[in-house]
Computed example of a mutant assay.
Amino acid sequence: MAQALVVTGAGGYVGRHVVSAAADLGYRVVALVRQARNGEIDPRAEIVEADVLDPSFDLTAILPVDEVAAVAHLAWQDGFVHNASSHMANLSAHYRFLTTLADLGVRRVAALGTMHEVGYWEGAITAEVPTNPVTLYGIAKDALRRSTLLSIGDRIEYVWLRAYYILGDDRRNSSIFAKLLDAADGGQTTFPFTTGKSLYDFIDVAELGRQIAVAATAPGVTGVLNTGSGVPESLADRVERFILENGLPISLEYGAFPDRPYDSPGIWADAAAIRALMAASPFAKEN
C-alpha cells in the first residue's frame, strides 16, 4: 500500500485542494475532518471524522505511524476573521497536536502558516524576515511557528509553509473576490473600494494545494518555506482582472474606503525555493 499523507482540515477551503493534489501524486490520502459532508472531498481519499485539537485524539488509532509519509496540518478556525478570539484560544491545542506527532514518531510534518505572521514589511519576504504581527490571527500563527520549530524542529523533518493572498474557488472563501460575487448576485453595479495600489502575492487555491502537497512530502525540506506565486500585483489590477474574467457587471468605486495605515505598499513571497520544488515535481510535466 502507498504511504499515507494525513491532511487535517481536509474539508476546508485549502484542504480540499491539498487532498486532490496529494492523490494525484499517488499518495494514500487520509482526510481528517470534524464533520464529513457529501461531495466535499475527493473520493480517492479516506475520510475520517476527528477533532485533532481534542486532547484525546490519537493518530495511531487511525493508522500505524510507519505508514505515514507526512502529516499536513491545515486545520484552523476563523482564518478569514483576523481578530477572532479563537486564534488565541486554540493555540495551545495546535501546539499539543503538533508536538504529539513528533512524540509518536511521525517522520515528517508540515504546518500551514500565513503572511500575516510578518506584519508590516515592504518587499519580498524570505525565511529570515523578522516578524511583528498586528492581528490575533498573525500573532497566533507566529507563536505556533516559533514554539514548534523550537520544540520539534530538531527531532523530525518539520516544514512551516507560509501562505499568501489566496483566491479561486471563491464561493468558499470570505475574501474580496467572494464579496464581489455576492454583490453581483445582489444586483449591485458598483462596489466600494480602496485605492487598490498595494502590491500582493496572489495564488490560486488549486496551485497552492499542489505546492503544499509537494512541499509537505519532499524529503529534507524543513524550516520556513514560502508557498506563493512570488509575483507582486496590485490589488486593483487583480480585482479588475477578476471582474473581467467572471463577466461581472460591476465597477469599482476607488477611494470609497481609505487604505489601512498598517498595510504595506508592497509585500510578496520570495518564491525561489517553492519554484524549484515544483519544477522537479510530477506537476511540472503538466505545464
Rank of each mutant, 00 (worst) to 15 (best):
L180H: 04
L181P: 00
L181C: 05
L181V: 02
D182I: 04
D182G: 04
D182H: 10
A183V: 03
A183G: 12
A183W: 00
A183F: 07
A184Q: 08
D185I: 01
G186Q: 15
G186Y: 10
G187E: 14
G187A: 13
G187K: 04
Q188Y: 12
Q188E: 15
Q188D: 12
T189C: 14
T190F: 14
T190Y: 12
F191S: 08
F191M: 12
F191Q: 11
F191C: 10
P192L: 15
F193M: 13
F193H: 07
T195I: 02
T195N: 11
T195Q: 13
T195G: 07
G196N: 01
G196T: 02
G196P: 03
K197W: 01
K197E: 07
S198D: 14
S198F: 03
S198A: 15
L199Y: 12
L199F: 13
Y200F: 15
Y200S: 11
Y200M: 14
Y200T: 02
Y200L: 15
Y200C: 11
Y200Q: 13
D201A: 09
D201K: 04
F202L: 12
F202W: 13
F202I: 03
F202V: 00
F202D: 10
I203K: 02
I203A: 15
I203S: 14
D204H: 14
D204I: 05
D204C: 10
V205S: 07
V205K: 00
V205A: 04
A206F: 06
A206P: 02
E207H: 06
E207K: 06
E207I: 07
L208R: 01
L208C: 06
G209W: 03
G209M: 08
Q211R: 14
Q211G: 14
Q211D: 10
I212Q: 05
I212H: 01
I212D: 01
I212C: 08
I212T: 00
A213F: 04
V214D: 09
V214A: 11
V214R: 06
V214S: 08
A216R: 03
A216K: 06
T217H: 09
T217I: 11
